[in-house]
Design a protein around this nucleic acid. Structure first.
Length: 421
RNA sequence: GGAGGCAUGGCAGAGCGGUUGAAUGCACUGGUCUUGAAAACCAGCAAGGGUGCAAGCCCUUCAGAGGUUCGAAUCCUCUUGCCUCCGCCA
């Protein structure tokens, strides 16, 4: 959510910045509601002050035993008028908030301007991709050959778009999760969480999935709960409606979760294999930081995620997203992609974003700064990383001519073997 | 799922329907004292909105939403959360 005060001061500037991300966003309704609300509130405040004073007087008179009967009829009128205005005020501020929640975050000044992913900038590229002296198979064929992936059973049980890992495949998936958690715990100062996988609508509002993107999430109507599309939702809401102390920051939180995505509107895209599934595993990294430090925190977050790709001995690149490709809530974002030689495709396995105060404003996550003033924290998050695509890239990259997989050294302690065959 | 109890500031904990944004204690911050610290004493210490150069002043907020009343932390209804007991269950 954007700062209404700042919009009020310079609506034109905001409109221009928003349009870098989303065309046809109008701020007119917000401006109108805001000024309506302002005049209403000031009128209401005066009446309330009047009412408070007179009520106090009655209290004093009563305690002295004086008669107060003749004051009541005037006050009744006042009270009725106040109630009417209060209702109106509630209505207007509610619709103002609704409008405000629809507006995307604005891009940071360092974000390259562009319309679509074509304008993204490759920030870090791998020197040269791994060479094969045979034609590399894709992960579907490899998985079938090694009997470590079972898409048929998954489809029978749950329909299309669900992964099923089997035997050494299940072990590898579990190893990846453990390895990635341990990596960040050992090398960075994170607190590990194992969060709920279902959240209340309010929580999804904080992080920006709601109100606009409810179709992307699975919803359990009976209990009014959403399945999380990422642990970001649970982790970020840990401090919802709290005021943190300056000394507590930065806070680094990490959590593994299954992630559930309906992928509505992407039917027919990457339908085979592990590239786009409704349920996947991800280790998520979330940071709560002082505003002045959030951009250096973003850089360190990206390099942290990239380090994991390196340790898994995968070819990866870091993409700096342009304004047009930024997500609703992000002010700046880097994606990390790994190369899948069998698919001959780059796969997005991490997305590291700075949301500045966009989420903290929605979730009312604040801190007391050095001067003792309360302000909104900046939130960041990054995948560290998402497994199914890592899984695909990993077995395709480390495949041998005979169809076996060499396990990268970093993973061997977790698997207890150096080869899957 | 059934039956009860509870919900107040960072924490603990008062609060007859009326000068209560809220006693008190702890924590925290500043000061006095001290060579320094501790102790003691004094003072300050919620958030949001409005207005003002500022000091200040006004409004809102005692889980949330409704209601009663001239006036609600206090009374009523609903919702949510927590605790206890019973049932079911990994």
């Amino acid at each position: 959510m954007l700062d209404l005060k700042k919009i009020r001061e310079n609506p034109k500037k905001f409109k221009d910045l928003i349009s870098l991300k989303e065309k046809d966003v109008s701020l007119k309704k917000i401006i109108d509601l805001d000024s309506q609300l302002k005049s209403l509130v000031s009128k209401l405040n005066n009446l309330q002050a009047d009412q408070n004073n007179k009520s106090k007087e009655i209290g004093i008179m009563k305690s002295k035993g004086e008669k107060t009967n003749d004051l009541f009829s005037d006050l009744k009128k006042l009270s009725d008028e106040i109630k009417l205005l209060e209702k109106e005020e509630k209505k207007i501020s509610l619709s103002l908030k609704e409008e405000l929640l629809q507006i995307p975050n604005i891009p940071h000044s360092t974000v390259p301007i562009g319309l679509s992913e074509k304008d993204n900038i490759i920030k870090v590229d791998c020197d040269e991709k791994k060479k094969f002296n045979f034609k590399p198979r894709n992960h579907i064929d490899l998985g079938k050959g090694l009997d470590i992936l079972d898409f048929e059973s998954a489809a029978k049980i749950s329909g299309s778009g669900f992964p099923m890992f089997k035997g050494k495949g299940a072990l590898l998936e579990r190893a990846l999760i453990s390895f990635m958690i341990d990596f960040s715990l050992k090398n960075y100062n994170y607190t590990e969480f194992f969060t709920p996988f279902m959240v209340k609508p309010d929580s999804a509002l904080t992080t920006g999935q709601l109100p606009k993107f409810d179709d992307d999430m699975y919803y359990i109507e009976k209990d009014d709960l959403f399945l999380i599309p990422t642990a970001e939702v649970s982790l970020t809401n840990i401090h919802k409606d709290e005021i943190l102390q300056n000394e507590e920051l930065p806070k680094y939180y990490l959590g593994y979760s299954s992630c559930f995505r309906r992928e509505a509107g992407s039917y027919g895209k990457d339908t085979r294999g592990l590239l786009r599934v409704h349920q996947f595993n991800k280790v998520e990294l979330v940071k709560f930081v002082e505003p002045s430090r959030s951009y250096e925190e973003l850089e360190s977050l990206v390099s942290q995620a990239a380090e994991i790709c390196k340790l898994l001995e995968l070819d990866y690149r870091v993409i700096e997203l342009c304004t047009g490709d930024l997500s609703f809530s992000a002010a700046k974002c880097y994606d990390i992609e790994v190369w899948a030689p069998g698919e001959s495709k780059w796969l997005e396995v991490s997305s590291c974003s700075n949301f500045e105060d966009f989420q903290s404003r929605r979730g009312n996550i604040r801190f007391k700064n050095v001067e003792g003033k309360v302000e909104f924290v900046h939130t960041l998050n990054g995948s560290g990383l998402a497994t199914p695509r890592i899984f695909a890239s990993l077995i395709e990259t480390h495949q041998n001519e005979d169809g076996s997989i060499s396990v990268p050294v970093a993973l061997q302690p977790y698997l207890g073997i150096s080869e899957i065959k």
